[in-house]
Simulated scan of single mutants.
Amino acid sequence: MDLMGMMGKLKETQQRMEETKKRLDSVLVDEQSSDGLLKVTITANRTIKSITIADALLEDKEQLEDYMILVMNKAIEKATKVNEAELDAVAKMDMPMIPGMENMFK
């Protein structure tokens, strides 16, 4: 492939990456505590959309804090996996493997 063709392909891929990032703002990931007392919804771009806390958790600040940390971290981890999988798929689509550029789109 000639240099101009490769540059065009790169620009096309970058545009698809931006479109995918915008689309990931509307992909929602839900996570909740094992007992369902705390629920979090986050986008695949890791923006928190909602948090639902059962009244029972409001009586114990320490337990609520523990639940928040646990559930938020799990939600962020899930959202990150979705985000990376989507962006990796776009980056690999039609792109020639150029040595040294494997991690360019991460």
Results as ranks from 00 to 15, higher is better:
92 K>S: 15
63 Q>F: 07
54 A>R: 00
53 I>H: 01
12 E>L: 09
88 D>M: 07
87 L>H: 02
34 S>H: 10
82 V>H: 00
6 M>A: 03
105 F>T: 07
28 L>Y: 15
66 D>R: 04
23 R>T: 05
55 D>L: 06
73 N>F: 07
73 N>H: 11
36 G>H: 06
2 D>C: 10
40 V>M: 09
87 L>T: 06
26 S>H: 07
88 D>G: 08
14 Q>I: 10
56 A>H: 10
67 Y>I: 05
54 A>I: 00
89 A>V: 11
11 K>Y: 02
17 M>S: 06
6 M>C: 01
97 M>W: 10
2 D>V: 06
104 M>W: 09
49 K>Y: 13
7 M>V: 13
66 D>P: 01
52 T>P: 00
18 E>T: 13
72 M>V: 15
43 T>R: 01
78 K>A: 13
87 L>M: 14
65 E>N: 04
93 M>T: 13
47 T>P: 00
65 E>W: 05
96 P>D: 15
29 V>A: 01
56 A>D: 14
56 A>K: 12
73 N>R: 05
13 T>V: 13
25 D>L: 12
87 L>Q: 03
24 L>C: 07
91 A>F: 02
90 V>T: 05
18 E>D: 14
102 E>I: 08
74 K>W: 08
93 M>P: 04
44 A>Y: 03
45 N>I: 04
58 L>T: 08
102 E>Y: 05
8 G>N: 08
95 M>H: 07
63 Q>L: 11
